[in-house]
Write a protein that binds this DNA or RNA. Sequence first.
DNA 1: TCATAGATAGATCGATCGGTCTACTCGGAC
DNA 2: GTCCGAGTAGACCGATCGATCTATCTATGA
Lengths: 193, 193
Amino acid sequence: MTTRTAPGPRERLLDAARRLTYTQGMGIGVDALLKGANVARRSLYEHFGGKDGLIVEVLRRTTAEDEEWYRRTMRDAGADPRARLLAVFDGLAEAVDAPDFRGCRYLAADLALADPGHPGHAVTREYRERVHRLLEDELLRLGHPRPAHAAAQLLLLIDGTLAAGATRPGTHPVACARELAEHILATPRRDTP
Amino acid sequence: MTTRTAPGPRERLLDAARRLTYTQGMGIGVDALLKGANVARRSLYEHFGGKDGLIVEVLRRTTAEDEEWYRRTMRDAGADPRARLLAVFDGLAEAVDAPDFRGCRYLAADLALADPGHPGHAVTREYRERVHRLLEDELLRLGHPRPAHAAAQLLLLIDGTLAAGATRPGTHPVACARELAEHILATPRRDTP
DNA sequence: TCATAGATAGATCGATCGGTCTACTCGGAC
DNA sequence: GTCCGAGTAGACCGATCGATCTATCTATGA
């Protein structure tokens, strides 16, 4: 068996920060993060240099995981690009319906980090670009006439779903979005030679 | 001529708070609000009871103004419900392209006010319900077969537009959303007897 | 065995937080 | 003239902020 080592302070800090910055917002205090992680104060500054460094590393980790979630969701949906893209919205339904859902972590981060020079913004921007490329690749394989435009539309639907899910529960945002996504994917195909 | 009285400390506070909570976020400090409004500390607590009271009053004012913006935008667009609804998206284009645009104030407020019992949440929720009804009324007049559902879809598009406009400028979110809105409005009509 | 690196606990720093308080000013109403 | 309400200026409160520091403990490797 793979020896299960107890997670060190670095991992505990990342886990606690991921959880607390999402539920309490980026304004969460260092003391709360330390208590949530059961870690000594000094360890935070040794490993991350400060609160900002920890936040950026959390964003890096979660964006990597979420990008992997997109890849896995589409991989599990088979080979048809249309089914793969719609599977993303089916997966969103679970996330939005989760009891502790609080909207898109990255939108919240961008709105909370008022300083436009904060390094967290670069992480979220690159994440959105990667997701855009993921969607665009599928639309290319689908033979969509305007893959970049359609990818932007799908991203807009995803953003809207996460926003509506956080602010207007009971309005079934995923169903609303999936219906519109189907229309985007139904746009007349360009013949693939 | 209407005698132009210099705005009192209450109005100055509301103006400064509206501006600063949008540009700097809800985490803005009381000192910064007072300095921005050129108002004595005591006046804030006399008029609003505290920072939270000021924030709630700002949300009340801006929601009223934004609801009025929806009404005016649709009124100026004439009588055709379809044109009136599309005019909303044309109006959004100006807002999103404004140089100081930072996304939807109310979504940012809901994400920043971590306490679910904060009275600000009630203000934003009721605002969204009023906008929903505005859109639904137009869809009813249009003879849309599912006016409530379509209104939720339009709101999702608006949310997505404001989110994408704040996080992915250059992706032309308004054009993306307007195209999808046209599809919603093109849904086969229910015959109006 | 002992040295070292990493982690812990916690005191402490200056700054800032939201909020309360006193003292003073000023412009009418009586 | 006098009084009073509204506003200003700013000291002050305890709490908390992010960050630095010393001191101690502990596991591992030479």
